[in-house]
Design a protein around this nucleic acid. Sequence first.
DNA 1: CCAAAAGTGTTAGGCTTACACCCATGC
DNA 2: GCATGGGTGTAAGCCTAACACTTTTGG
Lengths: 226, 226
Amino acid sequence: MDEHPSLAVSTVIFALRDSELWTPLVRRIRQPYQDRWALPGGWVAPQEGLETTAARKLLETTQLDPTYLEQLYCFGDIGRSPSGRVVSVVYWALVRPDQAERSSDDDNVRWFRADALPGLAFDHNRIVEYALWRLRNKMAHSSIAHGFLGETFTLAELRGVHEAVRGATLDPANFRRQVLAGGSIVPTGEHVVGASHRPPALYRYTDATLVDQGPLLASALTDRED
Amino acid sequence: MDEHPSLAVSTVIFALRDSELWTPLVRRIRQPYQDRWALPGGWVAPQEGLETTAARKLLETTQLDPTYLEQLYCFGDIGRSPSGRVVSVVYWALVRPDQAERSSDDDNVRWFRADALPGLAFDHNRIVEYALWRLRNKMAHSSIAHGFLGETFTLAELRGVHEAVRGATLDPANFRRQVLAGGSIVPTGEHVVGASHRPPALYRYTDATLVDQGPLLASALTDRED
DNA sequence: CCAAAAGTGTTAGGCTTACACCCATGC
DNA sequence: GCATGGGTGTAAGCCTAACACTTTTGG
């Protein structure tokens, strides 16, 4: 009864670049699937929480510090790793463009367009697909777009995030009204200067803007004592 | 690097009785939390899928065979078990009233009202709370109510499910129109007889009615080869 | 002045809500 | 017939989509 499966943590990371969704992958340096691209991750340490492990591995392998991090799913099919039973708790994360810049491509880390990935190790293609589906879902029902943006942003930038993720253009007028009526963002009073047109107002999210994760979030905030 | 946490699977089960949500719990027969009520579950066997484990443990401990079974969340906080690191993959399930009848209370299994549970073992109170939140969420956006019903049902029964879970009464006329317009149910042509009022029509879900789980479901159907 | 993007106004149509009303059965 | 719940009709109001229009900047 004490023969437990190996327990791993991996993370799907999304960032927005040129109105496209991109995701960083790491090259596997050992068998199985040596030299194939895979999600960043690693084994769960005995004295480390799952989300903490995800964040740490992310930082170690890609230098990224996400603005949003949420559990995606736990994958545990028996055949998913050729080298024995592995159960993977997978997280998904959003990073801002400026953070993504800091993690430039090198021999072991490379960014790919999220909808045009190569053949990945294990069942990681399927996992990214599911993460994409979840992102699109969440975008429609919550203010998750915040995770892609800085502290302040214009309505056009916010709209750009929605358009990129949903893959459709949105009416600027209606988008403005809907998002302002929602009450989750407020104008800072500042404006962008230097563009060759009318300067757009800057906005920021109100403090109360938390992505809806239900009862988990409240406890998660107190649990994180890293 | 090979010292992995213990991996368990547990399940939150919901059934509808007297327009209330009920959930069965099992009595712990060993330490820690001996004699406390807890979610049914057990360790993951090396050669068994996670969902399969959940279904098997469910049947073994409560004699229940759910009509719906979905992964809820993976709980892995370091302090959640006093007897060492345990990571629990938790599922949630729906059973029909007639199935629930078969699993009567005994010394080791007892049904509780889902919104009035005693103090459970481990972090199981928190887990049930989250499962309740997920159920209510899913009820609003999908045809998950099917899981509580038999093959055929009246619109009043379907409405009763929604009312019980949402905790509010619904306009029968509007409910009828909305659910029929959705196209996921069709009349069987039969009617209930024997009630002291106009006999209601029976309906059933169309074959195409699958609860929206995104890209996971398609593969899940092929993976399940039990 | 002109181009371009910000921001406002307005209208049509769809969906939700509320509630009045009719229908079919057992007693 | 009458009480009860099944089932239909309908109008008000809200939300959304579409698009015309005005505003403000740099060149």
